[in-house]
């Protein structure tokens, strides 16, 4: 089936089997390998991307279901020269070791900060229950998200001040 999905702002049309998972579409059809697969039971969250702005597990969405929708992956969040505050936070606070869960973790955390700009440690931990990390014990991930939240709030205030 033909599907058209806008990924990181660019529309891609590909012919896929109905069974193609969104994550396979991203990785194999588009070569966007920043999104990872860590399990086959929709739990680990390594494959988290944004679908029409909401964080989803791209291993549990069919590519055909995403037809006509827009996807943001880790590759669309920021570049080494222009990091998203979450990317900067993970770097600064050593919120990653092997890096495999990191893209999903960042995409999931972005969803949290969208709805809750100043989450408590407990809220961050609850929110991240769908993202497994085997390296960090989550300690520095929590610090990274808090730092990013602070940076985003500061940026929002600065923007507001500039508008005033």
């Amino acid at each position: 089936m033909n599907v058209t999905v806008t990924v990181n702002g660019k529309a891609y049309t590909r012919d896929v089997e109905p069974r193609t998972l969104l994550v396979q579409f991203l990785r194999e059809d588009l070569g966007l390998t920043g999104t990872h697969v860590g399990c086959d039971t929709s739990q680990c969250g390594a494959c988290t991307v944004h679908l029409n702005g909401d964080a989803v597990k791209s291993c549990t969405v069919l590519a055909v279901q995403a037809d006509g929708m827009s996807v943001t992956t880790i590759e669309g969040m920021g570049t080494p020269a222009d990091l998203h505050p979450l990317q900067a936070g993970f770097w600064e606070k050593h919120g990653l070791q092997c890096g495999f869960c990191t893209p999903g973790m960042i995409m999931s955390a972005a969803e949290l900060l969208k709805h809750n700009p100043d989450p408590s440690e407990e809220e961050i931990r609850h929110h991240l229950e769908g993202n497994y990390c085997r390296c960090t014990g989550y300690h520095n991930i929590v610090l990274a998200v808090r730092q990013a939240a602070g940076a985003l709030r500061a940026a929002a205030l600065a923007e507001q001040a500039a508008d005033d």
């Binding site: 969250g45 964080a55 989803v56 949290l112 769908g130």
Partner: peptide, 9 residues
């Protein structure tokens, strides 16, 4: 229910 990503779908 589930986790935030599950709840979005």
């Amino acid at each position: 229910v589930g986790d935030p990503m599950v709840r979005n779908r």
